[in-house]
């Protein structure tokens, strides 16, 4: 334990992997900035049709907010070495992540059945599918990482005490959460 403390004091710099994640987040933000600015440009042109938000998205928003909270609790219990609690919480985050993706899918189905489809004239709906779909893909990436972490936590073969991977997972997870909140507000505000 003393050695660990000494090491953290010695290293004033941020862990390179964490830093890489932050740069990656910047990169992802640029992608969504590109898409949402395209949305704004297009919404000022002729033939634009606005769409209503499917109700299911409110449930998915609740789910992802909750999952962020659970992820934070998982990180705390990992740091306090409460491994049983950590295992349950990380698995719960994973389950909530899966739920979010399923809910998004249901939202898309609802929208599709209400007549907002790909063919024909342009509008907010087409953008909604692309933007929210790409967001869901990023969540799915996080879900896969969570699955790997949960399996590792339950198998317990690797004795991993460094909290860096868990911290990075939490950072990424909060990021996709915030990104969704931004997109939701964007859709309501501009659309």
């Amino acid at each position: 334990m003393e050695i660990a403390v000494e090491q953290t004091q010695q290293r004033k710099k941020i862990h390179p992997h964490k830093f890489t994640l932050w740069v990656a987040i910047g990169s992802i933000i640029m992608m969504f900035a590109g898409l949402t600015s395209a949305y704004i440009v297009k919404s000022n042109q002729a033939g634009w049709q606005t769409v209503g938000m499917p109700n299911v998205f409110w449930y998915s928003t609740g789910t992802i907010l909750l999952s962020s909270l659970v992820m934070q609790m998982a990180l705390r219990s990992f740091k306090h070495r409460e491994m049983n609690q950590y295992r349950l919480l990380i698995a719960a985050t994973f389950a909530l992540g899966v739920t979010f993706v399923i809910l998004q899918w249901l939202g898309f189905r609802q929208l599709w059945n209400s007549g907002v489809q790909f063919r024909g004239s342009s509008g907010g709906g087409q953008f909604l599918y692309v933007i929210a779909g790409l967001h869901a893909l990023h969540v799915l990436g996080g879900v896969i990482a969570l699955m790997v972490m949960s399996v590792k936590a339950f198998l317990g073969r690797t004795k991993l005490y460094g909290s860096v991977p868990v911290e990075m997972m939490a950072t990424y997870w909060h990021f996709v959460d915030l990104l969704w909140i931004y997109l939701l507000i964007f859709f309501i505000w501009v659309g």
């Binding site: 640029m30 992608m31 900035a33 395209a38």
Partner: peptide, 11 residues
Amino acid sequence: GVLSFPVLLSG
């Protein structure tokens, strides 16, 4: 690259 390639990908 990190800031501009994602926008190309969107396109």
